[in-house]
Amino acid sequence: MKEQKCVFSDNLVSYIYDEMENKDAFEAHLTECQICSEELEMFKTLRVSLSALREQVDSEFEPISIPVIEKPAFWKKLLEAITLSNPLVKIAFASALIIIFSLTFYLLTLQRTSDLGLASNVKVDEKIEPQRSFPFAESKEHEVFTKENKTAEVKPIKTERQTRKKLKPSARQRQQLNLDFAESEEVEEGIRLVDLFEKVGEV
């Protein structure tokens, strides 16, 4: 036997749970529809029974305790990953660490040497020299007008060091000079003082 159902039966739940927008219209329907009014009473009774279970659920509730879950720090995660990994990974990690430490040590040593001015004298000189040798480097006094009426920059004056370097003869040049010095007659005369005194004595 098929159970009787009103076309508005589904709206009944909205009415019971107070989620109906047009209540008046449905209440008017309830006065006319016996099926809906009987179902409404039935559901009201049922909800009283359900409230008993609801009370039981509320009374049996206990606040749960969630263990404090702290997110592990990066280094902890890394350490854990390494300790749990296979020996090859451990070796690779150890090698990487050694390389990193060696590089860091090397770079630090290099830095310290440069701070003491032992390794990069040239840089220091270059920084200081232009000011000493060309005090107007920043000014435009070194600019001259060429024939083409164009501004041309005067080549910076060679630094003292560069000049000294250029004047200073190379080893080969020095050798050559010594040879010339030894072979030169003038020099030979100049050196031989005895001959000179002899000449003076004669005078």
Binding site: V48, S49, L50, A52, L53, Q56
Partner: peptide
């Protein structure tokens, strides 16, 4: 139902029905 059984028993019945 509320008239027939005590609250706890009723709750138990409802629980089983649910």
């Amino acid at each position: 139902p509320p008239e027939l059984v005590e609250t706890k028993e009723r709750a138990e019945l409802v629980r089983k029905a649910v």
